[in-house]
């Protein structure tokens, strides 16, 4: 599938108290995907990314796991309304968190529901005989897919019940990884910050550290700036507290988008002049200074004006 499609909910499993796993099938063959890929699920006009938990090879179904947040939103709506036999509007799979094929060793770090893409990576590593190890942090009694992770990882799993245990496990793990290791982490912002800080302190180059965010940080309102839309020649002011994406939409400039939080990367646009202030979580460390692109849902301008390739 490349565009939106309707998938049938073939099974729903209560994985933990607040996590449900959904098995989605289609009468058409399902496209294989890279480990760490996600589906974009839509319901009542709201769309959210959910990691696929299988390894992606010859899938007979797409499996996602969804945690009830208690704050409303799509995840809670899925828990409340989706039943076996129902249908979901889905696009993807999309790959934004792939493994590095030439890594000598893969270190996977998961916290909470962040286990979902890591489970996909772990399954692929086991399928293809890639060297790997796992650090899994969870709240006691609330570890999604724990038995499967234990079975797949075996002796290569470090379990860390609680944030303190996770911090210790991460600190210890990043100090003793063999040369050539790549690290992949998914979890709350605080855990990802912990991982990147620990890696930096241990001398890891950022190119070896790959993180997937599932929540975006709160951003300040930013300073006002102006954009020049090349195709129309129109100049649009972007006030503080209003995103560039909103300004473009109000002016009738179509920009494909999804998350509106700088996480998914869908709204990327080209920049012809000026310097963007990147506030997204998509650009890798090596591209944080890139001046030729930006994600207008969150990113703003570091100069008074930007010229946009729109």
């Amino acid at each position: 599938m490349t565009g939106d499609d309707r998938l049938t909910v073939a099974a729903v499993e209560q994985t933990t108290v607040d996590v449900r796993s959904y098995v989605l099938t289609s009468h058409r063959p399902l496209r294989p995907y890279e480990p760490g890929s996600h589906l974009v699920v839509g319901l009542d006009g709201v769309r959210t990314c959910y990691s696929l938990t299988d390894d992606g090879t010859a899938p007979d179904a797409y499996r996602i796991s969804v945690r009830r947040t208690g704050r409303g939103g799509l995840s809670d709506a899925l828990h409340d309304t989706v039943r076996v036999g129902g249908q979901l509007s889905v696009s993807g799979p999309r790959s934004a968190f792939p493994p590095v094929p030439h890594a000598r060793h893969h270190l996977f770090v998961a916290a909470g529901i962040g286990i979902t893409p890591i489970l996909s990576h772990l399954g692929a590593a086991r399928r293809w005989g890639r060297s790997c190890s796992v650090v899994y942090g969870y709240r006691s009694g609330a570890a999604a897919h724990l038995e499967l992770v234990r079975r797949l990882a075996g002796a290569d799993l470090v379990e860390a019940p609680g944030r303190t245990a996770l911090a210790s496990a991460v600190a210890e793990a990043v100090e003793r990884q063999p040369v050539g290791t790549h690290l992949y982490a998914c979890g709350p912002r605080a855990v990802l910050d912990l991982v990147t800080d620990r890696c930096a302190a241990a001398g890891w180059p950022p190119e070896r550290v790959h993180v997937e965010h599932f929540t975006a940080p709160d951003l300040d309102a930013g300073a006002p700036f102006e954009v020049l839309v090349r195709s129309s020649g129109r100049r649009l002011p972007v006030p503080a507290g209003v995103s560039l994406l909103e300004v473009l939409e109000r002016d009738g400039v179509a920009v494909d988008h999804l998350c509106r939080t700088g996480v998914c990367g869908r709204c990327r646009i080209g920049v012809l002049a000026g310097t963007p202030e990147h506030r997204d979580l998509v650009l890798p460390a090596a591209l944080r200074d890139a001046a030729d692109r930006m994600y207008p849902c969150v990113s703003r301008a570091g100069t008074a004006e930007l010229e946009l390739d729109l």
Binding site: V174, E175, R176, Q177, V179, A202, W204, R208
Partner: peptide, 10 residues
């Protein structure tokens, strides 16, 4: 030599 080093080695 590399087998006796860890990530962080330059």
């Amino acid at each position: 030599l590399a087998s006796r080093r860890h990530v962080g080695w330059r």
